[in-house]
Design a protein around this nucleic acid. Structure first.
Length: 305
DNA sequence: AACTCCGCCAACCGCGCGATA
DNA sequence: GTATCGCGCGGTTGGCGGAGT
């Protein structure tokens, strides 16, 4: 048994409030208090529903409302409280005198959320975003490593190169990265996508063992000799699935986007288990950006992120 | 000058919860 | 226990105005 909406009576005004209405509401509440919101419009001679009056008063007309830009301190408070409380705007508003929940919500949606995303932070969890990676297919479609861009067809060899590159990126994820960790930068410098092109690799890879052999002999892993075997094997399985999907569907073979693959975080979790911890306090996702832009065209990076 | 696009924000809507009959 | 009411919350919408073309 649902409740009837409070504003379903015909003839009740909706939309923006005009100054006369505001004055009526202010004067009435200052004189009598709001009392029952439902009965207020009649008592105050307003052709509005009680809900509309309440909203207008609490979000706009209330005398203690602070107007204007949010200060950096207020911004910090909102960020901090949101990381604890989530979208509990009214609870957050109680810690910011003079600010309404609606105002904070709007500020969050129009400014703070974007700011966090731009920083590479998930606005809901306040942790580094790992969903940049989306799916392998999307990644491979979007990410055109320098030197591979000119190659028109995504043949198996190219695909393996891209896969090897992805392995490397995934491998980076194993390392706790912080702004003070220089290892990741030196690895990025050592890592040369061009070397992928000059490497002899099998033209078809349909089994984990072949992938394992290919990756073991690949110069990429000279930089990372300690890559766990399990990582290669697990990725080999996923790769096998991809290859099969492509082989079975020739039309799709020219469009890597059509390939079926698990999401990278899912793969990484499978492969690395507890070692893969994107919420690690030592991991600062924002540091990943320079690395990524080292590897990829910046324009494509913005598409990806 | 005219038009389009886009960000901002006031206002609306639907739902859930506690109080009450 | 159940129906209804009133309120408050969070998500969403749509109008306005400024920027860009």
């Amino acid at each position: 048994m649902g409740r009837s909406p409070c504003c379903d009576e015909s003839g009740i005004k909706k939309g923006p409030w005009d100054p006369e209405e505001d004055q009526k509401l202010i004067q009435f509440i200052q004189k009598n208090g709001h009392g029952s919101w439902r009965s207020l419009p009649k008592r105050a001679d307003l052709n509005r529903c009680g809900k509309s009056c309440r909203l207008r008063w609490t979000n706009y007309l209330r005398p203690d409302i602070k107007r204007g830009k949010f200060s950096p301190e207020e911004e910090q408070t909102i960020l901090h409280l949101h990381s604890i409380l989530g979208n509990k705007w009214s609870a957050i508003a109680t810690h910011l005198p003079g600010r309404t929940d609606n105002e904070i919500k709007n500020f969050w949606n129009t400014h703070l959320k974007k700011k966090l995303i731009h920083r590479g932070t998930d606005p809901m969890t306040h942790k580094p975003r790992m969903d940049h990676f989306a799916t392998l297919s999307q990644l491979m479609a979007l990410a055109k490593p320098r030197g591979i861009v000119e190659q028109r067809a995504w043949d198996d060899a190219t695909r393996l190169q891209a896969e090897a590159l992805r392995l490397a990126m995934q491998y980076f994820l194993r390392f706790p990265v912080s702004s003070t960790n220089t290892d990741i930068s030196s690895m990025a410098l050592k890592f040369d996508p061009m070397s992928l092109l000059s490497t002899q690799i099998p033209t078809t890879v349909t089994s984990p063992s072949l992938l394992s052999a290919a990756t073991n002999s690949h110069p990429l892993f000279h930089h990372f000799p300690e890559t766990p075997r399990i990582l290669q094997q697990s990725l080999g399985n996923y790769m096998h699935q991809d290859s099969t999907a492509l082989i079975n569907n020739q039309e799709e073979s020219n469009d890597i986007r059509a390939a079926v693959s698990p999401s990278l975080p899912e793969v990484a979790k499978d492969c690395l288990g507890s070692e893969y911890n994107c919420s690690s306090s030592s991991y600062d996702g924002s540091v990943a950006s320079p690395l990524w832009s080292e590897l990829f065209d910046c324009s494509l990076m913005t598409e990806l992120i």
